[in-house]
Amino acid sequence: MWQELHRELKARNFSVLAVAFDSREGAARPWVEKAEPEYTVLVDRFHHVAELYNMVNVNQAVWIDEKGVIVRPTESAGAYEGFRQANRKTAQMPEDVAKKTGDAKTTYHDALRDWVAKGSASEYAFDGEAARAHLSLPTPNVAEAHASFFLGQYLIGIGQAGEGGSLVEAASRLHPESWAIWRQGAGLDQRGLAAKADFWERVDALGDKKYYAAVDMKGMPQ
């Protein structure tokens, strides 16, 4: 998914670093081998990076400069809600929705290019005050959820699926905004995606709320 951007920009002191929130042993491998990414892909069994950066979904991203400073905190990486308006059997989107989905991706990728070219002078790189204003910070329940998730996934990994599964469910109740925790614990369809009927019920229950939190970026379709 990020291959083209990585190829285009890697000679300019830039790297994509992908982290797979995948607790199931070996789950990431076939997808990664098929994509043959030239960037580093890490496997995060316990969603540690989600805890550190308060991420709740994929694809979410953080922009980090050469000195290790966050210049855009956790946000949806150019995703648009289009899938919610797609035909659920064929995944076909109405034309205008497909266009917005494409525009969201293009806008986000162009913003990344601008940052790589201009650094802190890019209008897309926040200064300290703006970066802090865009942070989403964890609550005590979120901290408890990550502890419960860590313990639950460890127990599942050593064969204690019953107790482990209960702890993962408890984590999801403590942190209902996290699609990553919920989908990791959910059943998979025949494509290997956590997109069975219970997923769509949960999406529909969002109502007017977003699945991918809105990105504060000029030109981003809302």
């Binding site: 929130f21 990431a28 922009w63 980090i64 290790g68 290997g192």
Partner: peptide
Amino acid sequence: PHSLSDFRGKKVFLVSWASW
């Protein structure tokens, strides 16, 4: 093992992903 700090000196686009 890889650390985020191994990338110091580069701009990093840290992005989450999942098979599910």
